[in-house]
Every structure is written in structure tokens, then in C-alpha cells.
Design a binder for these strands. Structure first.
Length: 635
RNA sequence: GCACCCGUAGCUCAAUGGAUAGAGCAACUGACUUCUAAUCAGUAGGUUGGGGGUUCGAGUCCCUCCGGGUGUGCCA
């Protein structure tokens, strides 16, 4: 897919690449703040001037001379402000261009990408922090697909971790049959885990018991093993169910127990030793340990302890090598779950089975959506393991898609009924803590959102059928939640508060939904769509100046859409898409508020307005789909 | 100690090194017999934490100070 700016960029690049050392990505376009500076602008002469110590003005003039004849869509290309190159579209071009390219598909880049997200410890219900992870991950997935990548979504299951052992220890006085009778297991374990954590803290005897449970799980000794298996599966099913409520889905579940069972780490260690990535430490304090050098901080990170056991990072390294295809071994697989609409199945890894090739793994680029606190380990994997093992011709890349935590405002913590210390009281936010049970459960939040939106729906339409109202309420709840989780930049700590999260006005998901719902409503009420066929050569000069100006700004803004999605991926910052969509909606609302469509008597003008609204609808539908925000029938 | 991140309107946040720093919320004023008021229009609100520097141009890059946060384990 080539969008408008990309086409111009290509021509520009060809005209300068012989003279300057520059990559196409460095040529960046923006829409100038004032139309007197044109409709599209680049500062490339300034950038080139820095590289060669020349006058930007002269470089700019030379570039314009070279490309002028090659770019037919512009009436003028002017140099301004000492080095800006400003492009002026021919009248009517942009409208025509956007209509013509409305449903253009992304080029098939044939690149396979794996995105790992969600990856919640399977010992309790999901909370708001996990929601941020899954929502960010899912927008990343859909954006990559939009840009033409083949994406495989993986969810990693730490089924052998100490957290599972904690709750198994807490449940040991029950037998498996009794545990199976527990309703809402994930939610039940939420409280149990908090209680267990309290008991374990400062009680060495309990901890020792728990460690024995952990060991028995690893050695597959019942009842500990079967209980742990049951719990992690059931909790996983609960996580999948909750995420499916938000439209978030997976292709493959990867179990840590299978990585251990199939001895992936052994193969990983062989590769790393052979390539001198891992080596025996010479540091007397790390005598007998195998380490990886982390150059950025000049630290040796222990991978294999002196007692020959593997540290936490080891399993992640093996998994990453498998994901990037730098590794011979593979898992076995079986079907785990079919979604209710039956359009998709989830598979899960296994440690035995048939040799069927499912084609999982082996991607060129691997994203791991995980909190910023994991940066240290993720950087080691990406910089010290994956990068050096990737030969230049088949570059493999592991990208840490990081984000800050969701925390709670002190007020919110108190609303939830927890006591907080005086110290915490003074802070702007308090960390979510599974161990203390301090968090908002994902499903509780979704429930609150549904209750509130149902009220709003009924307020606006008291006669609405119950089922219809519920469906719309769910859609609004999902829209509000998903937008809230991605609208902040990933470096912002979200200080969660019900007041903000339950907002339906202003910069919120429902605002975006409302914009599209109203556009759809206009189209429904239009007496006849047939009277206004899609037409590329509309007579824009019929519009009075004010309307033309506002309409033109929307067209310009619409032309940025694909570039914005690319920018979001390039910067690992999907909030770009949320912000862009919000601004687009503001512009659209402003326009059709000023210029009514159905009531317009001049059929030509009506045709123009309708065409614009259809363009906005087309882009907005795509954007909402990228963000997983549903479109209600009415609001 | 070392490394990284953050500090922008009363609050919550935007702003690829680019032309006049923008939104939402809260406050105030106005627009529903009208294509849906979950909307729209308007008023007010700023020394971008302080100070230096680089640059044609700095909220953005560099240095420094102040304030806040995170990571840095033979834990996971």
C-alpha cells in the first residue's frame, strides 16, 4: 500500500539519494499550521543542510527544480521559512484521490510477526493492569495486520511458577473434586491468593511447605500436580473468557511446563555457549555460574546458577529463540478452545503428540507486550541474545513493547475498602498488588461500565427492548474501556480512578462511537442513497468559502490515516491512533453540526457533504476496528 | 552508587526538533419543535519545574540543579 505522503516521499528520495546519505524514513511530512504554507510540508532541506553544511534554502530550491515535473497533483511547490518545502494541491485533487483510494488494501508485506501479550499468571482473576496489557497488545496486533503483516498472537502461561504453588498450598485441605465444585474459581482464588500471601509473609514454616508443594508440582506428584493443572487451566479459561468480552483473541497458548518438559533451555544453552553469548563467569563472586554480559550496564547476568539450576530469564530466552526461529526444536500442539462464533480456534502447546506442522513460531519480528519494569531482562534478550544470533540477511528482531503500570489513586483504594498507610495516602497513586489483593478486577470494572451505560441507554430511550439495550450497553462499555486503556502514552502511569474510567463524554470511547453512530443515522434517514452515487469529480466551487475551508481541513486530516498507523508501530505507541481518531471525530462533529446534509436543498452541495461523510465513515470504521471499539446500532 | 523514565492550564493528559503549545474534565455563558444535546459554539485558565548550552528554529536534544518514579537478586 502506498499512501499519498509515501508517494511524494519516494519521488523526493529518488531526487536526493545520490547526493546525500539519507534513508527514506528521514523524510517526514506534516500538514502546515496555516493553508498559506500549503497542504503538505517537509523540512528535509534543513536536515540535509546539517549533513553537508550547506544553506537549506539552496538545497530546497534544487530539490524543487528536480521534482516539480514529476508530481502532477500539485499546483505549486514553494520554498518558505528558509527551508520548508510546501506543497499545494491542485483544486479538487484531494477529494478525488481519497475517494479513489478509499478501500485500497495494504500491500502484502509477507512478514510474519509474533505478538505475545496478556500472559497473566494463571492463579487468579485478571485485573486492570492486565487489561492495559491486553488492550495495547490487541491494537498492536490489528495495526500490524492493517499494514499487511501476518500476525500470530501468543499468550504465555506460567503454569509452573511459585504463584500457582501459593494457591495450591492454600487449597490443599480440599481434594480436587471439591475444588471442581467452586463456582467462579478465578475470582475465588483472587481472595485466597491475598490471604495466602499474608499467611506466608513472615512464616518460614509455611514457606517451606509451599516450596515442597512447588517441588511436587514440578515432579508431577499428585494431588499437588493435578490440582495445579486444574487451577491453571480453569483460570486460563476465565482469562480467555473475559478478554473475549472485549474482543481480544489469541492463536496460541504457550505453556511454560512444556518448555521445561521438552528441555528447550538445554538447546538454548548450547546455542549460546557455541556463540560465546553465555560463558562461565570469571568473577569470584559468581564462581561456577554461566552468565551473559549486558553491555549497556556492564553487568554479568547469571543464567545458570552454581548449583546448575536455571534462573527466571532462562525460560524466556528459550521461548524467544523459538519465537524468532533461531532454534531447531518445536512444541507439539492440540486444540484448546473454539470461540462461540466458531470462526477461530485457540491452540495450546503440548509436550507430546503427533508431528503435525502447525506453522507456529519462526517469525521475523517478535513483540513482547510486557511492563516497563521488565526492561532489564527484555533488553538482555533482545540486545545480547537475539540480535547477535541474527545474521544480516535474515534479520530477526525481538522488540520489548513496554508500558507503564496501572496504579490506583489513594481515593480509589479506599473506595475499594482497603486500608492504606499514611505514606500511601500522600502519594499520587498506589501500586496494584495481587499479593495484597489491591486492584480492580477486570470483570468487576466491565460490570460497572455495563451497569452505567445501561442506565444511560435507558435514559435516552425509555421504551427500548431489554435485550437491545443490554447489547448496546455492552458495546459502549467495551468502547469506553478499550479507549481508556490505550489513549495514554505508554510511558504514562495510569492513576486509575472510577470517575475517569467511567466517563462517557469528551475524550472517551463513547464519543468516538457516537460520532459514527450519528453518521450512520444520517445515512439511514437519507431518502435515497441511489440519487447520490460515488463520484470523484464533485464541483467543490459550489461551496461557500467557510464550508470549503472546514471540509478541506478534514480531507487533509483524513489523508494522514495510514501514516498515523505506521507511526504508531514505528514508535511502539498505539496511543497515536487513539489521539488521531479523537481529533478526526472532533472535526467531523464540528462539520456536520454546521452543515446539515438531509435538509440541504441544493442537490450538488448535498452530494458533496454526503461524500465527505462517507469518507469519514470509511476511515472511522477502520480506526475503531483497529482499537477493538464496537459500533452500536444506536446510542 | 550506576542505568532508565517522568515533571506542560486548577485536575487528567496531547503535541515526528518546525511555523501561533492544544484537548478533555471542572467553572462560567449560550444552542434541543432541527441529520441523536453521549453533541456543538463561546469565556476564562501557561515564564512547558529552575538555570545554562547546541540549532535557522527547543516543551522536545545536551549539561546542571530541584522534585517524583522504576530497575539494578545465585527471587520469580
Amino acid at each position: 500500500m502506498k499512501y499519498l505522503q509515501e508517494e511524494v516521499r519516494e519521488k523526493l528520495y529518488r531526487s536526493i539519494k545520490g547526493e546525500y546519505d539519507i534513508s527514506p524514513e528521514e523524510i517526514i511530512f506534516s500538514i502546515p499550521p496555516d493553508r498559506k504554507f500549503g497542504c503538505l510540508s517537509t523540512t528535509i532541506p534543513f536536515i540535509l543542510a546539517k549533513k553537508k553544511k550547506e544553506k537549506p534554502f539552496l538545497i530546497g530550491s534544487r530539490i524543487i527544480e528536480k521534482i516539480k515535473a514529476e508530481l502532477p497533483y500539485f499546483s505549486e511547490i514553494k520554498l518558505a521559512g528558509g527551508g520548508f518545502i510546501n506543497f499545494y494541491f491542485k483544486k479538487g485533487f484531494l477529494f478525488k484521490y481519497l475517494i479513489e483510494h478509499k478501500d485500497r488494501k495494504a500491500a502484502d508485506k509477507k512478514q510474519k510477526v509474533i505478538v505475545e501479550h496478556t500472559s497473566i499468571n494463571p492463579n487468579k482473576a485478571a485485573h486492570i493492569g492486565h487489561l492495559r496489557n491486553a488492550c495495547l497488545g490487541d491494537v498492536l496486533v490489528e495495526s500490524l495486520r492493517f499494514l499487511g503483516c501476518e500476525v500470530e498472537v501468543q499468550n504465555y502461561l506460567d503454569d509452573t511458577g511459585i504463584q500457582v504453588a501459593d494457591v495450591v498450598w492454600g487449597l490443599l485441605h480440599y481434594g480436587l473434586e471439591e475444588i471442581k465444585k467452586i463456582k467462579g474459581l478465578a475470582s475465588y482464588l483472587w481472595q485466597l491468593y491475598a490471604d495466602v500471601s499474608k499467611q506466608l509473609a513472615g512464616n518460614d514454616q509455611f514457606k517451606e511447605e509451599r516450596n515442597k508443594v512447588h517441588q511436587k508440582i514440578e515432579d508431577k506428584i499428585d494431588p499437588e500436580y493435578e490440582i495445579s493443572n486444574y487451577i491453571s487451566q480453569e483460570v486460563l479459561r476465565d482469562h480467555i473468557r473475559v478478554m473475549d468480552m472485549l474482543g481480544i483473541r489469541y492463536d496460541l497458548l504457550v505453556r511454560e511446563s512444556d518448555i521445561i518438559e521438552l528441555d528447550f533451555f538445554k538447546s538454548a544453552a548450547e546455542i549460546m555457549l557455541k556463540n560465546r553469548i553465555m560463558y562461565p563467569s570469571a568473577d569470584p563472586e559468581k564462581k561456577g555460574c554461566q552468565v551473559i554480559k549486558y553491555k549497556r550496564e556492564n553487568i554479568e547476568k547469571i543464567i545458570i546458577r552454581s548449583n546448575n539450576t536455571v534462573t527466571y530469564i532462562g525460560k524466556d530466552i528459550a521461548y524467544s529463540l523459538w519465537k524468532t526461529g533461531l532454534f531447531e526444536k518445536d512444541f507439539y500442539y492440540k486444540k484448546f478452545h473454539t470461540y462461540a462464533d466458531r470462526v477461530k480456534d485457540i491452540y495450546i502447546t503440548d509436550s507430546q503428540g503427533g508431528k503435525e506442522d502447525f506453522g507456529f513460531g519462526n517469525a521475523q519480528t517478535v513483540y513482547n507486550v510486557i511492563g516497563i519494569r521488565q526492561s532489564y531482562l527484555q533488553n538482555i534478550i533482545s540486545e545480547e541474545v537475539i540480535a547477535p544470533l541474527s545474521p544480516g540477511d535474515s534479520q530477526r528482531e525481538a522488540i520489548h513493547f513496554s508500558y507503564e503500570m496501572v496504579a490506583l489513586t489513594p481515593r480509589c483504594v479506599e473506595e475499594l475498602g482497603f486500608k492504606i498507610t499514611e505514606e500511601e495516602q500522600k502519594k499520587s497513586h498506589v501500586d496494584v498488588s495481587g499479593r495484597r489483593g489491591i486492584a480492580v478486577k477486570a470483570e468487576d470494572l466491565i460490570g460497572k461500565l455495563i451497569v452505567k451505560s445501561l442506565q444511560e441507554v435507558k435514559l435516552r430511550d425509555p421504551d427500548i427492548e431489554e435485550e437491545k439495550a443490554k447489547k448496546i450497553a455492552r458495546e459502549i462499555a467495551v468502547g469506553a474501556l478499550r479507549y481508556f486503556m490505550i489513549k495514554f502514552s505508554s510511558k504514562t502511569v495510569i492513576a486509575f480512578d472510577f470517575k475517569d474510567a467511567l466517563a462517557f463524554e469528551g475524550d472517551t470511547g463513547p464519543y468516538l462511537q457516537y460520532t459514527l453512530v450519528r453518521i450512520n443515522s444520517i445515512l439511514r434517514k437519507l431518502e435515497s442513497r441511489e440519487a447520490f452515487p460515488e463520484k470523484q469529480d464533485l464541483e467543490l466551487s459550489l461551496l461557500e468559502e467557510n464550508e470549503y475551508g472546514i471540509l478541506y481541513e478534514i480531507l487533509l486530516y483524513l489523508s494522514l490515516m495510514e501514516a498515523q498507523v505506521e507511526l504508531a508501530i514505528k514508535n511502539s505507541e498505539v496511543s497515536v491512533i487513539a489521539n488521531y481518531t479523537y481529533t478526526l471525530c472532533q472535526k467531523a462533529n464540528h462539520y456536520y453540526h454546521l452543515f446539515p446534509i438531509i435538509a440541504e436543498e441544493n442537490q450538488e452541495i448535498k452530494h458533496i457533504r454526503l461524500s465527505l461523510i462517507l469518507l469519514v465513515k470509511n476511515k472511522l470504521e477502520k480506526l475503531l476496528a483497529l482499537m477493538g471499539i464496537p459500533v452500536p446500532e444506536k446510542m
